[in-house]
Every structure is written in structure tokens, then in C-alpha cells.
Amino acid sequence: MNISRRHLLILLPTAAVAWKSVLAGTPEESPNYKMTEHWWGMLIDIPKCIGCGNCVRACATENNVPEGHFRTWVEQYHVTDWNLTNPEVISPDGGKEGFPAVKEDPNGKYFFVPKLCNHCADSPCTQVCPVGATFITPDGVVLVDPKYCLGCAYCVQACPYGCRYIHPEKRVADKCTLCYHRITKGLTTACCENCPTGARQLVDLKNPNDPIHEFLRTHSVQILKPQMATGAKVFYNGLDGSVR
């Protein structure tokens, strides 16, 4: 084995130290992660998404997502120019195994839209939880406390994006954690790590060196259902108006 730590240490020192401690079986010794220094979100670059389903599979593997439920999924849109507001959408098995090939439509367009929890700053789901079992962390991630959740499913009803479900075995609300167990150790999320085209990128809005700031300044970026005023932190570049 040709071990060269130098390359790695220059690239991402925190990740390296974190991984070392993960390897040693002591993740709690990873570099002091300060919640107040981060404000997490995600950037989704729609023109880059190829609908391969890698993110869906990676998420399911990383997080043991139960069959038939999705913490992230991919939708394929077909919008015709004579019916802009009524797209045809499919997401077979959440796009886990990709999509059937489609032929060019001279009167329409096709594109993919990856979806996940928007980790809203003003999230309607945490608002309605009767006991405080779901909440937004000081670093901006909406989490569910599986040891405290009643499983009443009120939050499932309150999410405008359909990102929550009741875990069939645990009988509690379940959803994307933005791979909180990874991002607090300097790694990126499983979906971003495995996206082959860089269509998904984890962003830290509190980090002044994060390329997201430059990106937001230079692109037309949108969030999903802005009329819901949820303060969504998943930003979409090149989002079509028909996407819902």
C-alpha cells in the first residue's frame, strides 16, 4: 500500500483527522465541531443531473432507509410547451434504479429534479410537533429524535414537500438528516459524495470560503414552493417553473 497522507492533509485537514478518529472507532474525538459555526444547506444544479439514481441508492445504504420510503428521490419532468403548468412527472421507486430512456420530444423538454428535505429555517414540520421530538439544530439541520417521537404523523402532514414518512418498523417520523453523522465529521453527505456529476453539493452558508456564496451571486437560484415561506435551504439552479 502506498500511503501518502500529505496529499490528503493539504486537501481537507479536518476530514483527515475526523476519518482517523472514525477508523480508530472514536468518532467523538474528531476535531471539535462547533454547531454555532455552521449553517447547512444544499445546492442542486439541475442542468447537471443525469438521473442515474446514485444519490437515492447511496442515501438508502448510508441511512438504512426502509423500502418504499425515501429521504431523497429523483423526479423526471416532461413539460410540453403547450401545457407549461401541467407537467408529466415520474419517479419509479424514487428513481433508485434510474429512469427508462425517453425519446426527444420536439414540443417539450425533459429534465431531472432531485428532492430531499429542505432543512427549512422556518420549518412547518417542527412547528406542529406536539412534544418537541423534531427540531432544527443550531447548525440548521432539521432532525427527528427517534427516542422521543410519538409517531403521530402531524409533521408528515405539515411538510409541503412530502419529505417525511413514518418508519414502518420504528413507528416514528423519519426523514433526511443531511447525513448529520457525516457532516459533523468533515465529510460530505452520502448523496453528494456519490453524485457523479456534482449536481448536488453540500453547502455551509456560515463558511465565508464556501463556493456557494459566489454561486448564489452569479446564478438565478430558486427554492421549492417559495410561497410556503418555509425558509428552505436547498437551493436549485436552473429550476423550471413547472416544478412542484
Binding site: V128, P130, V131, Y148, C149, C152
Partner: peptide
Amino acid sequence: PLQLHLGHPERSPEMYFTPHSTSAMAMF
């Protein structure tokens, strides 16, 4: 019916112990 519907009925006293002030259901 609410108790039967809950995933974890044994946790329902949490509604009394830590009611969430912004939740309509917590008032129940």
C-alpha cells in the same frame, strides 16, 4: 383512537410533560 393510532402510545404523556407551545396538537 388517538392512542391506537400513535406509533408509540407509551410516549403520549410527553404531551403533558413537554408540550410544544407552537403546536395545536400539544394543546390537546
